[in-house]
Amino acid sequence: MPARRPPELIALLDLEPLLGKQVRVLSLGERMRCELAGALLHRPDVLFLDEPALGLDVNGQAAVRTFLRDYNAQHGATILLTSHYMADVTALARRVLVIDHGTLRFDGDLAALVETHSPHRLVRVTLREAAPAHTWAGFSEVSAVDGAVVTLLVPRAETAAIAARLLTTLPVEDVAIEDPPIEDIIRAVFADA
């Protein structure tokens, strides 16, 4: 084991304040960070992680994700990650496997997952003031209305054309185009099964 490894892990995972504590008094998040350090002591080529952000606050989750990205980049390690936190998946995964009761439902990159299982995009339009319901006729399916903010569910292939029409025909203050939340896409994978 390289002499630098423990101090490097202690610093990167912010373990210094925990070194004098008994394991039984550590919080779940603190234990998770210590277990991650233990798993990395011998610089494995393959790292199996089950819910690595479990029990961590928002800052801790971000720190672990950054650490894992950096570890992968620096050491070329393969990281197999199981997680119900879609933020872990979107931040860390290049390849995604969706398994449903032991059956592989999807195997590919995240962009392909989104494109395959989400034929629509969300176009969120903010107008200068709220508009009546008939304003949206002919644009696309209205997904949500919140005052002057309307979210449309637009077929992926028609996104640019509909956004251009919105901008030229309505008093638009802002427009945002995005894919549906990854949780919705994962639900679609299961529903398609």
Rank of each mutant, 00 (worst) to 15 (best):
E51Q: 12
L166T: 11
V189H: 15
S83V: 13
I79D: 00
R95W: 00
A93K: 03
L167E: 09
R124Q: 06
A87W: 09
P17L: 09
F67T: 02
P171K: 07
V149Q: 09
R124H: 02
M86F: 11
D88A: 10
E183T: 14
A163K: 10
D70K: 04
E183H: 11
L15Y: 03
L47G: 02
P180A: 06
R69L: 01
A144G: 05
D109V: 09
I182G: 12
P52N: 01
E115W: 08
Q74C: 00
T135W: 08
T168R: 15
A87H: 13
D146I: 02
M1C: 01
L97R: 07
R5W: 04
Y71F: 00
V154M: 02
P181E: 13
E51A: 11
Q74Y: 00
A163W: 04
H75A: 04
A133E: 10
L36M: 09
F190C: 08
L113W: 06
D109A: 08
V150T: 06
D179R: 08
Q22A: 15
P181I: 05
V114H: 11
V154G: 06
P171V: 09
I99Y: 05
E35A: 12
V96M: 06
A37H: 08
I177S: 01
V96P: 07
E30D: 09
L18D: 08
V98M: 10
R5N: 06
L26Y: 09
H101R: 14
L92M: 00
P17V: 09
V145S: 00
G60R: 07
P52G: 03
S143K: 12
L104F: 12
G60P: 08
S118N: 15
V142W: 01
P171G: 10
R31Q: 15
A73F: 01
T151H: 11
S27E: 10
I186Q: 14
E35K: 07
D146F: 05
A53Y: 04
D174E: 12
A164D: 15
S143D: 13
G108P: 11
T66G: 09
D57H: 03
L47E: 01
A39M: 00
T116P: 11
T159Q: 14
A137I: 07
A39R: 03
L68F: 03
A188G: 15
D179S: 14
L122V: 06
E115G: 14
E178C: 13
L166R: 10
L153D: 13
S140D: 09
A161N: 11
L92Y: 00
D70V: 01
L166E: 10
G138L: 02
Q22C: 13
W136G: 10
D146R: 10
H120I: 02
P52R: 04
I162C: 07
Y85D: 15
V23T: 12
I177G: 03
V123N: 10
V125D: 01
L110D: 02
H75W: 06
W136P: 08
R5V: 14
G102R: 12
E115P: 09
A63D: 06
L12D: 14
F106H: 13
G147P: 07
A160E: 15
F106K: 11
T168N: 12
A137E: 11
G38W: 03
D45W: 04
T103G: 08
L110S: 03
A161K: 13
E178W: 05
L170A: 14
N72I: 01
L15F: 01
T135H: 06
